[in-house]
Simulated scan of single mutants.
Amino acid sequence: MKTRNLLTPLFASVLMTFGAAQAQADNVVTLRVHHFLPPSSNTQVKFLEPWCAKLSAESAGRLKCQIYPAMQMGGTPPQLFDQAKDGVADIVWTVPGYQAGRFLVSEVFELPFMGISGEKSSRALWTYATKNATDEYKGVRPLIFHVISGMALHTTKKQIKTMADLSGMKLRAPTRLATKMVAALGATPVPMPMPLVAESLAKGVIDGAMMPWEVVPTMKAQEIVKYHTETDPSLPLLSTTTFVLAMNPAKYDSLPPELKKVIDANSGADVSAWAGKVWDDATHTGRQSGVDHKNVFYTVPADELKGWQKASESVATEWVKEVSAKGYDGNKLLIEARALLAN
C-alpha cells in the first residue's frame, strides 16, 4: 500500500509532463517549404535555413519548416507558384519569370543593364512590386522579393569577348526578357530552368549559359565549362532574375495572431534586401569555384559593353509596349523602377 501511494503522485507527474509535451507538440506549426535547387545550394543553406531558424527562434519553437529541395514535392519549377496558390506547399521560393508573360509588371527588373547590387535592387523590387504588381500575385502572400547579383556568361568551347563572338552560339537564357536580350545580342537563346543547365552543357545542347555565380558550384558547372565572361562592374548588371518567396494565404490565415506577427517580422523590404545580400555574398564563393578549377576569365570593358547596351535597348522598348497593351502605363513603370534603383 505504501509503495502504491508513493507511485501515485509520480505517475500523475509523468502524465502531466507528457500532457504538457503533447500540448506543446500540438501547438507547433510545420511549414512545408518547396524549391527547385539542391539541398547543398546557397539558396537553402544561406537563405532558407537561416530564415526558417529565425521563425523558430522568434516563435519559441512554435513555427518549424520542413524544407523540400530539388522539387521533392513533385512538379516542375514553373509550377511552384501555383503550388503555393493551391496549397500543395505552404511556402515556395521560385522564379515568377519561369512562366513567361504571366508576371509582366514585375519583370521590369529583369531588363538588360537594369539592376545594380542584389541588396539594393531587392529593396527596390519590394517597393515596386508591392505597389504595382499586386494583381500578378493574387492567390499568394508574397513574403520576400529579391533579385540575384547579376549574370555572367559561362561557355564550354569559346571565350566571349565581344558581341560578335556571340553570333551563332546557343546560349541558355533564364527568363523571357533574358531570351530577348540574348537574341538581340546575336546569339540563339535557349530558355530553360536551372536544373537542366548542367546536363545541357555537358551534352552540347547549349554552348553556354547565362547564369549567376551563386549556382555554378551547386550545379558543378565549373567542371563542365572552360570560360567565364563577366562585365565591367562600373556599369549596371548585364541581366538579373526576379525571385519571390510566397506563402499560401489560407495557411497564413490559419495561424494565431502571435505567429502571424513572426511571419510579418520576417517579410518585407528589409528582409528582401537581406536576401539580395545573400546573393551578393555568394557571388565571391561561386566565382572562386571557377578560379580553383583554373578556368579562363575575361571582363568585357565598358567601351565594348556600350554596344551591347545599344543593341538591347529594343528589349525595354518592347516591354513598355507589351505592358501598356495590358492597360498599364509601361513608360511610367519603367521610369519608376529606374528611379527606385537609383535611390
Rank of each mutant, 00 (worst) to 15 (best):
I67Y: 01
I67P: 02
Y68F: 15
P69V: 05
A70I: 00
M71K: 02
Q72M: 10
Q72Y: 01
Q72R: 09
Q72H: 01
Q72K: 13
M73T: 13
G74P: 04
G74T: 03
G75M: 03
P78D: 11
Q79G: 15
D82M: 13
Q83T: 10
A84M: 07
K85L: 03
K85Y: 04
D86E: 14
G87F: 02
G87P: 00
G87V: 01
V88L: 05
V88E: 07
V88I: 15
A89L: 07
D90P: 07
D90T: 06
D90W: 08
I91K: 01
I91S: 05
I91T: 03
V92K: 11
T94K: 10
T94H: 14
T94S: 14
T94P: 12
P96G: 05
Y98V: 09
Y98A: 13
R102K: 15
F103T: 05
V105D: 10
V105S: 10
E107H: 10
V108I: 14
V108T: 11
V108Y: 10
E110R: 11
P112I: 05
M114F: 09
G115C: 15
S117Q: 04
S117W: 05
S117H: 00
G118M: 15
S121C: 12
S122G: 07
R123P: 00
R123E: 04
A124P: 00
L125K: 13
L125Q: 12
T127E: 10
Y128S: 00
A129T: 12
T130F: 04
N132G: 11
T134I: 07
D135K: 11
K138P: 06
G139K: 03
V140T: 06
R141I: 02
L143I: 03
L143N: 02
L143Q: 04
I144F: 09
I144W: 10
F145R: 02
H146W: 09
V147W: 02
V147G: 06
V147H: 01
I148D: 14
I148W: 05
S149T: 15
S149C: 12
S149V: 05
S149Q: 13
M151E: 15
A152P: 02
A152N: 13
A152T: 10
L153K: 03
H154D: 07
H154L: 14
